[in-house]
Design a binder for these strands. Structure first.
Lengths: 148, 148
DNA sequence: AAAAGTTGATATTTATAAATATCAACTTTT
DNA sequence: AAAAGTTGATATTTATAAATATCAACTTTT
């Protein structure tokens, strides 16, 4: 099994990633624009995708095409994730963060300015990395509520 | 404002409800088949809808047509709701209940046999009544995690 | 130098989700 | 008796979501 550093290494340019996924580069850019994915960006704005990214996109496509969940549906499910329990951010941060207060989209798309997450690279956050599918979000909610 | 007993009274036959909602009776039956709604059934199987039902269906239609969340998306969001925290059911019940274990749909559609909910009328359950929209589900999750 | 990539915008295609309709045989309500 | 409702099944329509393409002008990488 691949070490974590390896599967998270952004190595695939956009066309290669598209080929690996059997989709077009326009689709990848569309997913990014819809805040479903946060690809790595070189300093020259070129995107690079990792094995993790590929896996995540496959998961998203399965949700869309097999589970028949629309893109907006996926975003709303992402919004159910209690990211503040992972981040352990302050009450003040929470009070000015749409990810806590609303259900308008994934935290990495709606995070509050002037919060602990504001300047963080969400792509590297465990909320983004570990909770990119419905099952993982449900598991988190269940486990968190049960352990308390 | 209407007393609760009044808005929950099932009084509208299917055609009347459809007219109130500006949709067809086939749509109402489809929503029921998809487990989005649980209409009241007379002993003769005739459906009756209450003011609450009308409100819920309007909310569902807004999710579909305005928020662009597919029907399967809505069901998956319903599946995020921690119903077991409302029901306070036993660990044994949880261990044999898809509503707890999986995210395949709303609890009223996937509840375990041989559980406290098995023989209950879900239409009257506060999970069904009070958590029929994304906002309410997110609020529940937030409030429950914050109060613990 | 050629190929690949970027941006933002707009356009087109395709599959299909959602909505509605039809059918038939039945029961219930008015 | 007529109208409304039920069931399950199948069919059709319509709007549109998702996917893909085109464009142009640019930058970056090979």
């Amino acid at each position: 099994m691949q070490p974590e550093e390896s599967i998270n290494l952004p190595i695939y340019p956009i066309r290669t990633a598209a080929k690996l996924l059997n989709i077009s580069v326009h689709t990848l850019r569309m997913y990014e624009k819809e805040n479903l994915i946060l690809p790595f960006k070189k300093s020259t704005s070129h995107r690079l995708y990792s094995e993790s990214d590929i896996k995540r996109i496959k998961c998203i496509r399965s949700a869309i095409n097999e589970s028949k969940i629309s893109i907006n549906g996926i975003k709303t499910i992402y919004a159910m994730m209690p990211c503040w329990e992972v981040m352990d951010c302050s009450k003040q941060d929470r009070s000015r963060c749409s990810a806590f207060l609303r259900h308008s989209g994934p935290c990495w798309a709606v995070k509050g300015e002037d919060t602990i997450c504001a300047k963080k690279n969400c792509r590297e956050c465990s909320v983004y990395q570990d909770y990119g599918d419905c099952g993982a979000i449900k598991n988190f909610i269940r486990n968190k509520l049960t352990s308390l």
